[in-house]
Design a protein around this nucleic acid. Structure first.
Lengths: 177, 177
DNA sequence: GCATATAAGTCAACATGGCTGACATAAAAT
DNA sequence: ATTTTATGTCAGCCATGTTGACTTATATGC
């Protein structure tokens, strides 16, 4: 009882700490996505469109099934937004050379532009948070988030050095400007 | 050009760093919520129910409008899930003493139980990530996430010491066990 | 070369959880 | 006494997730 009143009950502290982390994740994600959503309404697109756009931009030449694995949705759900984006000229699909069943997705210049616009404010927000928190905090941020991600994807997201060492079942990596 | 090839282009590094952060947030949130979702199907409840349940558990006696401010949804949307939870005996509503228009929400013992069960795996996951990353990393994780949250809520989420100093427009704080 | 497996696309129907708009009630505040 | 606030409710719409069934083209294994 003395423990509880003096606030040194280690079980309580642990629980409180964990809950704070869970909430922080909720609040940060909420505010982070709100920002893109506001931009999306102008283009009459939804959050699902943004996600597809983002990851295609991030992994140029990604296949449909790889994209599905990232988004963790069904192909029927993806088809809906992907077809929109292709029809509106934001994304191109080209059959693979070695395996012609595969469709490799890429952003058109127009798509690249759109992606940049939508993500713009999000980048600024993260940048500000990074700047205010400092390099060391950013390192911790990454470490913890990475620990929350499932083991499989965690490997793929590891620092590039480690990923290259591994011979890579990896996705196409972002191209430098 | 030499900059780009040698990978020391500071603009590229910055962009890459920010995108990594954005993605990490996506992946972590995806895997974090998946876990609760799996549990929720057993009780025939949705993610929206869980969010309400969680925050009522976290802020016993919270009013409807306060809850709305956290969730950032319309009262019509909230009503749907809240009514379910009340009807099924997970949450009680009691009129405020000073202001009898207000409905103060609380978890019943049954609701508390449910909340614990659903959040169980999420807590374990965060705990594991914290343990692996270390105390310093956790500090950084919090700092950065807090920086992503909007200013208003950031204040409310600050370390309790600071919040108490502030005379508090704050929500009811969690009770210790 | 034929059988089977894989990658992708499509149609249809359904569930969840957001949204807007309109309106009602009770209690507080002016 | 009037107005404002907190909450609740009805009705309908939309975005985005789901399952299930089926097609087409291509690759792969025997």
């Amino acid at each position: 009882m003395a423990d509880i009143k003096s606030g040194v009950n280690p079980l309580f502290l642990r629980e409180e700490e964990l809950r704070q982390g869970m909430e922080l994740l909720f609040y940060a994600y909420r505010d982070f996505t709100d920002e893109a959503d506001a931009m999306l309404v102008r283009y009459k697109l939804g959050r699902a469109h943004h996600r597809a756009l983002y990851f295609v931009g991030r992994h140029p030449g990604i296949s449909v099934s790889e994209l599905l694995a990232i988004l963790r949705i069904t192909k029927q759900s993806l088809a809906r937004v992907l077809n929109d984006l292709v029809r509106q000229g934001f994304i191109t699909q080209t059959a693979g050379m070695s395996d012609r069943r595969r469709r490799h997705l890429e952003l058109t210049p127009k798509g690249l532009d759109l992606e940049r616009q939508i993500t713009e404010k999000q980048r600024t927000r993260i940048a500000r948070a990074y700047r205010q928190a400092g390099a060391e905090a950013v390192e911790g941020f990454r470490k913890v988030l990475l620990g929350i991600v499932n083991e499989h994807d965690r490997r793929l997201l590891q620092p590039p050095a480690a990923a290259e060492r591994a011979g890579s079942t990896t996705l196409p990596t972002p191209k430098r400007p």
